[in-house]
Amino acid sequence: MSGSAFEMLRVLVVEDNHHMSSLIRTLLNSIGIREVHEAGNGAAALDVLREKRCDLVLSDLAMKPMDGIEFTREVRMSPRSVNPFLPIVLITGYTERCRVEAARDAGVTEFLAKPITAQSLFARLAEIVERPRAFVRCGAYFGPDRRRKQAENYAGPWRRHDDHNDLQV
């Protein structure tokens, strides 16, 4: 099952529950991903990213002293960030709208709701590799384009309020 592309992938798992972290590592190993780094919170994860090259991050939301949202914000916005385009999957048992929106606005690439299954984890990974997201820099935001869908009934030419400045009619 393991292809060479899997063997080249380097994943960082950020999770304060060591049982969950270990399970995710074993799941990644099962598909042939050999290089899996682990960190117990966002601050430790930033240290890992400064030392190890990673292609993808799977991060928990609720951690101390730095949670998954603040970690994502640091990766996206900090001038010291090693790779602001790094795909970040936020794995969370918190499903309230306000938390999901805060994570999205921090620049999370994908969400994965706990409890996880092999199918749900692998589906998120597939989503990330097969459909890399466009990034947007706008005001205080830098991160993946937050619009995922084209409105079916929208036939107009503008998608952003300032698009009309560019449109040649």
Binding site: M1, G3, A5, F6, I31, F122, A123, L125, A126, V129, E130, P132
Partner: peptide, 10 residues
């Protein structure tokens, strides 16, 4: 590689 990996993951 992405297409190959995606097929395996699914």
């Amino acid at each position: 590689d992405a297409a190959k990996i995606s097929r395996i993951l699914r």
